[in-house]
Design a protein around this nucleic acid. Structure first.
Length: 243
DNA sequence: TGGTTTGTTGCAGC
DNA sequence: AGCTGCAACAAACC
């Protein structure tokens, strides 16, 4: 499920419960779930891959990680991590990380680095990238402090779009390539969102999980690269190395 | 069929 | 003390 645009879709679906009271709260999350009972859902926000449910001053953070899922007005055949029942329906979360924020969300999250936020700040992101010359570009795209909401699909698709090899360091890239990177992550976030809503995301993958380069038709390279050894799909011919 | 994976945390070991 | 690397989580998909 869980790159940023998928979480934005989830947020839009849960927003229909805003203004309603939690009539029933249960689940196996390791938080004090009883605290949520009777509170009104005042806002649903998101930062990157995190969903934030604001309930009368208490904020629940839901992160679907790699395997998490949810169901609205239906249930899955397993116990929910968190289930919230409202007058008009219910939302159920499974196999996810659930925590209560220790401080107001505005003090914990920098909305300027959320790739889907109205407050997205490309100039700030560019400045941050310039301060990290030794970081691999394949790691930079996955870094949530830089590009909140970007994930492995973003990484593969954006690097293919801007024709940059994943093993370049940020410092090796020409200035205009860094600018292109920032612009294309933002652009792909909205492409992803639109395609996901239309249920056509996968058919638009040009690199991720692909076997052949659509530009030059040679086989893609497939390797686990970078700090987290995440899978990369890339074209050794079309995606350039600098420096 | 079974290996892989849209991700992150926490902790052991150094 | 601060780092690194790996287990854990746990299920749909190809």
């Amino acid at each position: 499920m869980p790159e940023g645009p998928s979480i934005l879709i989830l947020r839009e679906e849960v927003e229909r419960f805003v203004g309603q009271k939690v009539q029933r709260a249960e689940g196996n999350a390791r938080i004090d779930i009883a605290v949520l009972q009777g509170r009104t859902l005042t806002a649903v926000r998101s930062w990157g891959k995190q969903l934030l449910l604001e309930l009368d001053g208490v904020t629940v953070r839901v992160h679907l990680l790699l395997f998490g899922s949810y169901a609205i007005d239906t249930r899955k055949d397993r116990p929910p991590r968190l289930s919230l029942g409202f007058a008009s329906g219910e939302v159920n979360f499974y196999n996810c990380s659930v925590r209560l924020l220790e401080a107001p969300a505005d003090t914990l999250y920098d909305w300027r680095s959320d790739t889907l936020s109205d407050q997205w700040d490309p100039a700030l992101t560019l400045a941050r990238l310039r301060d990290l010359p030794d970081m691999l570009i394949c790691d930079a795209i996955l870094d949530q402090q830089l590009f909140a909401g970007a994930g492995n699909i973003f990484k593969n698709e954006v690097l293919f779009r801007i024709r940059v090899h994943p093993l370049n360091t940020l410092g090796a890239l020409p200035g205009e390539k860094l600018e292109e990177l920032v612009a294309e992550v933002r652009q792909y976030a909205f492409d992803f969102l639109a395609w996901k809503k239309a249920h056509v995301l996968k058919q638009h993958w040009q690199a991720h999980r692909q076997h052949t380069c659509p530009r030059c038709a040679i086989p893609f390279s497939k390797a686990k690269l970078g700090r987290n050894q995440r899978r990369s799909y890339y074209c050794e011919h079309c995606q350039l190395r600098y420096g």
